[in-house]
Design a protein around this nucleic acid. Structure first.
Lengths: 243, 243
DNA sequence: TAGTGGTCTAGACCACCCT
DNA sequence: GGGTGGTCTAGACCACTAC
């Protein structure tokens, strides 16, 4: 087994183990080879194996038992997201068992509202780019998402915006920045009539509203997103694990 | 600086650094001493310092910049939880700036419903202990929480249940088990009239509903919780960080 | 170029679980 | 007792950033 060095060794190992779990090479509930055995197989140190396993444990994919072994978590099909994937709507829809599609409704360049300029740390009336999208699960609309970012951040010509990129890749491609962290607000709201229309729900149905702001390592706001989430079709079900 | 060995060294270091950040010894936005300097000060290896810092980074407390340094995140007062503390309602209320209090409404021992027995992996009609609580923020009711666990798990006499324990301590005290991970469901609902009453909201107001199931390392369900969360008073605002 | 965090190694000892 | 994961060390090299 040889490992290519494009990503870190630990990442490659965890990706490999993830595959083996998904492909049932390591079936649900069974015990994995010990850390030493894995270290030996992949020809890396035990510490590297441990960082790879720690990643999978955080995702809830494996359970670690001191003095016993590492086991594949058999309860995982239930889950559709984990601590770092809250905003990957595409992935969330797919792992809920639906076929995800995205429709880019509109993009516009306009002056920021007071609230937007506040959140994005820009001057009032600075121009922003706004992008509105609908996410479908098996052709049923489930998420209405609006994203806003300062036009000053956009390095690439944005005549043609690819509305299908995951958010991190989007920022990397169009802004050449890296998202470091995000602050998310989760609320319950009633569907206004226009939102209800696009999500094909009754007016005043309960909806989840997610407001997320993404920052880079310099604490500069990069992007703001407000999404309406129809939880009658899609569940927001996440796994959280302790060390 | 000498460090006591009751908890792990890395935990002590991160606790110590957390204190320094909260006490403004390391003020918001400033750069921390380098890893080597910290390792030298605490007389531990750099690897230990790194696991401590990784913990703080996951909580969003610090930002790490390769080739530059580690900085205190100045945007943190906004946040009241990180994924990992979703069910610590007490802490969530406190860090939102309110005084938390808990009222234990009722505990009862009864037969499990079909849904409960399914979630808890027990036989239909097996007996469960149910506990209903209200969480107050500055004397305003904000969360209505119901917890259910199989009576077979309760080792301690539960005549007097301490309804104020954090969930992990509760399970540890009364069941002598450790929670390994949890699966949470977040939904938006309309307040039924009884829930609306206790939370002092209008009937059919939008509320967050959190359904959480806690498991141990053997994948045995320990405890189930269903909570109604008034997000007009309290925000569910969480931080998520990448490596 | 100097200093920082990011990655990886090799080895040690411990706490814990199973038999 | 033997094997497992949990913690920690000491040292190396790399990638990146600021100057």
């Amino acid at each position: 087994m040889s490992i290519e060095r494009s990503k870190t060794v630990a990442e490659q190992v965890s990706a490999l183990l993830r595959d083996r779990i998904r492909s049932q090479t390591y079936a649900a509930g069974v015990r994995l080879p010990s850390e030493s055995e894995l270290a030996n197989e992949f020809q890396v140190s035990r510490a590297t194996i441990r960082t790879a396993l720690a990643q999978l444990a955080m995702e809830g994919l494996i359970l670690r038992k001191q003095g016993d072994g590492t086991y594949v978590n058999e309860r995982l099909p239930q889950v559709n997201t984990h601590l770092g994937g809250l905003w990957e709507f595409n992935h969330l829809i797919a792992s809920s068992g639906y076929q995800p599609t995205i429709r880019l409704l509109a993009t516009q360049t306009r002056a920021a509202t007071a609230q937007e300029s506040d959140v994005l740390d820009i001057a009032v009336e600075d121009t922003v780019v706004s992008m509105e999208r609908i996410f479908f699960a098996n052709n049923r609309p489930v998420i209405l998402a609006q994203n806003i970012l300062p036009v000053a951040l956009v390095k690439q010509p944005h005549g043609k915006i690819d509305g299908k990129l995951p958010i991190r890749d989007f920022v990397k491609t169009y802004c050449q920045r890296e998202i470091a962290y995000a602050i998310s607000d989760i609320r319950a709201t009633l569907a206004a009539s226009d939102v209800a229309d696009t999500l094909e729900r009754e007016a005043n149905s309960p909806l989840l509203k997610l407001k997320m702001t993404f920052y880079d390592k310099n604490n500069a706001p990069l992007l703001f997103g407000a999404s309406y989430f129809d939880d009658t079709v899609l569940n927001l079900r996440l796994v959280q694990a302790w060390g």
